[in-house]
Design a protein around this nucleic acid. Structure first.
Length: 427
DNA sequence: TCTGGGGTCCTAGGACCC
DNA sequence: TCTGGGGTCCTAGGACCC
C-alpha cells in the first residue's frame, strides 16, 4: 500500500504559523509579482476566492471580507517543507519517502500490515503537526493514483475523516471512484476531461477505470494513459521513485515588475536569472551544455490569450558543459541581443539550462582538450558567501545594480526561519 | 534511373503536475 | 494597469545511417 501526505493549504499554513491570530481567518498567498492567488485558507475558499485567479480581479472580494494577503515567501515555505519531509523520513524511514513537491510526499507503507494502516496514518498526521505546526492530510490506497484520490476525499469533509482516508477494500475503492469526477483524477487535465466527457460520455473515475488499455493508449497520451487506467484498477504502475535524481532542465524565469523596452535592463535581468540558474546547477553538482533564453512581448492586442503569446526563444550550444556563471552569462546576453527588438515592450524573460551532465564527467573537445576547473573554486566561494551573508552580496556586474525590472512583492512576510535578522521575536 | 526495410538520434510540441 | 514559476514524460517527425 502507498500513501500520499499533503500539507493543507500549505503556503497559508506557513504564514499562519507565525501569526496565530490569523487562525480561522481568511488568508491568501500570491504568486510572484503578486499576480495571481496560489494558496487559500479554507475560510477564503468559502468566501469564493478562486484558485489561480488574478489578484486584481479578486481584490474587491478580498477587501470586502478583510482577507489577509501575502506575497509568496519561498525561503519560509522551503524551510518548513524540509521540516515536514524530515519528520516523515524519521517516522517511516528514508527509503520509504518520495518527496513529490514542496507540500506532498508519497510513502511506501508495504512494511505495515493492512490492519495497522489507519493507526499509522493517524500517527503520521499527528506527529507532523506536533513537530512542525503544519496540518497534513493522509490518503492511503494500493496505488499512487488511488492514494491521491483518497487524499482528496480526506480533505473534502475534514470533520468526518479527520484528514485521513484509507481505501483498503474493493468496495471502498469502487465507491470512491464513482464519486470522483473524471477531471479530478490525478493525471487527467482539462483537455482530456473535456474529450472524455464529450466524445465518450465518461464522467466519473469508475467509468474511466473500465475502459480497455488500448483506448487509453490511443486517447490519453499513449503509455501514460495506459498506466493511469491500470493504477485506477489497483495495479501499481507508478512505482516509488529514487530521490536525489538530478534535474534534466533548470529554469529561472520571471515576469518583470512592469513592461520593459530598454535592452540594457533586459540583459541585466537575464544575467541575474542566469546566475540563479547556475547556482541551482552547482547545487546538484552538474554542468550544462545548452543555454536557452526566451523573452515574452507585451500583448498589443487584447483579443489574444495572455498565455504563450509573443514568446520568442533561442539557444546556444556551448563548446563544453559548464557551471560557471561567467561562462553562461556571456552567451545568454548575446542571445538577448539577438532576440530583443528595438521599441518593443517585454513583460517576461527566462533562462533555461539543459544538456545537463554531472560535473565530474565534463567532456572536453578537440579544441578545448583540458577543462580547467579554477572557475569552479571561485563559484563555490561566491555561493558560500551569498548563502551565509545574504542573497547576492557577490554578483557579476552584468546583473546590474538598480534592477528597475524587479518583480513586485509588496506583501512578503519576514523569512523567520532562514535569516538571522528576520528571526521571529517574542516581546 | 529507380528503389527497401530497418534502425538511431534529435528536436519541437503537447499533455500533465504542483 | 494588473493573469506565477518550475518541472516531467511522451510522441511524432525529420535527418541520417546501413
Amino acid at each position: 500500500m502507498k500513501a500520499i501526505v499533503d500539507c493543507n493549504n500549505f503556503y497559508c499554513s506557513c504564514e499562519r504559523l507565525f501569526k496565530p491570530w490569523l487562525d480561522k481567518k481568511p488568508v491568501v498567498v500570491l504568486s510572484n509579482n503578486d499576480g495571481c492567488i496560489i494558496s487559500r485558507s479554507d475560510e477564503a475558499k468559502l468566501l469564493g476566492v478562486e484558485m489561480a485567479g488574478p489578484y486584481f480581479m479578486a481584490k474587491p472580494l478580498i477587501e470586502k471580507h478583510n482577507v489577509t494577503v501575502f506575497s509568496s515567501n519561498y525561503n519560509l515555505y522551503g524551510d518548513l517543507s524540509w521540516r515536514v519531509m524530515e519528520t516523515l523520513r524519521i517516522l517511516i524511514g528514508k527509503k520509504n519517502v518520495e518527496v513529490y513537491s514542496v507540500d506532498e510526499a508519497f510513502l511506501d507503507l508495504s512494511i505495515f500490515s493492512k490492519e495497522e494502516l489507519p493507526a499509522i496514518a493517524l500517527q503520521i498526521r499527528e506527529t507532523v503537526e506536533q513537530w512542525t505546526g503544519i496540518k497534513v492530510s493522509v490518503g492511503v490506497a494500493p496505488t499512487k493514483v488511488l492514494a491521491k484520490l483518497a487524499n482528496r476525499m480526506s480533505k473534502k469533509n475534514k470533520q468526518k475523516t479527520n484528514c485521513i482516508m484509507v481505501l483498503d477494500t474493493e468496495d471502498k475503492i469502487i465507491q470512491a471512484l464513482r464519486n470522483t469526477p473524471v477531471g479530478d483524477i490525478w493525471g487527467v487535465g482539462y483537455q482530456y476531461a473535456q474529450k472524455l466527457k464529450e466524445h465518450w460520455c465518461i464522467y466519473d473515475a469508475l467509468q474511466l477505470r473500465n475502459v480497455n488499455e488500448e483506448f487509453a493508449k490511443v486517447h490519453l497520451g499513449g503509455v501514460v494513459g495506459a498506466r493511469l487506467v491500470r493504477e485506477l484498477k489497483g495495479i501499481a504502475s507508478r512505482e516509488m521513485e529514487d530521490e536525489l535524481v538530478n534535474k534534466k532542465m533548470i529554469a529561472t524565469t520571471r515576469m518583470f515588475g512592469s513592461p520593459v523596452s530598454d535592452i540594457a535592463s533586459i540583459k541585466e535581468a537575464v544575467a541575474t536569472y542566469t546566475s540563479r540558474a547556475a547556482e541551482k546547477l552547482r547545487r546538484q553538482h552538474c554542468a550544462a551544455k545548452v543555454i536557452s533564453v526566451f523573452v515574452v512581448a507585451k500583448e498589443q492586442n487584447h483579443n489574444l490569450t495572455f498565455k504563450n503569446y509573443g514568446t520568442i526563444s533561442s539557444h546556444t550550444i556551448l563548446p563544453a558543459a559548464t557551471s560557471c556563471t561567467n561562462e553562461l552569462i556571456k552567451p545568454a546576453v548575446a542571445l538577448v541581443e539577438k532576440l530583443v527588438e528595438k521599441g518593443q515592450f517585454y513583460k517576461k524573460a527566462g533562462v533555461m539550462l539543459s544538456g545537463i551532465v554531472p560535473d565530474a564527467s565534463v567532456q572536453g573537445n578537440l579544441f578545448q582538450p583540458e577543462i580547467k576547473n579554477n572557475g569552479r573554486l571561485l563559484m563555490d566561494m561566491i555561493d558560500n558567501v551569498n548563502f551565509s551573508q545574504r542573497d547576492d552580496v557577490l554578483k557579476f556586474a552584468a546583473s546590474g545594480t538598480t534592477r528597475d525590472w524587479k518583480m513586485r512583492q509588496e506583501l512578503r512576510s519576514p523569512r523567520y526561519t532562514t535569516r538571522w535578522d528576520e528571526l521571529y521575536e517574542i516581546h
